[in-house]
Amino acid sequence: MNVSLFGLFSVFVILLFIAGTYSILVTFNLIRALIGIEILIKAVTLLIILAGYLTGNLGLAQAIAITLIVIEVVFMVVAGGIVLSIFRHHGTIDTRNLRDLKG
């Protein structure tokens, strides 16, 4: 099988995307939804680094990946705080039981 480095990595990036999206779509647990988002972000990070490696511009790719990681951390901290607040108010993190925001 003759597959380039780009082909090999991009196939696995697509598979990571499928796993992350499936996780978000199927679960009702808010923490699992966050884990799904985290998997999607990891796929994007890998794609950015791969693009930088293949175009020879790893400096820019790493700078963007670092920015992405910083945003990812802040997002996870705030989202984790929101999940905890929801748990304190409702006693559950199952989205089927959270109906207070419904129109």
């Binding site: 099988m1 003759n2 597959v3 380039s4 780009f6 082909g7 991009s10 196939v11 293949l54 175009t55 020879g56 511009n57």
Partner: peptide, 10 residues
């Protein structure tokens, strides 16, 4: 599979 040779602008 993706094309075995991809030309990237370096």
């Amino acid at each position: 599979h993706f094309p075995s040779e991809v030309i990237f602008i370096r």
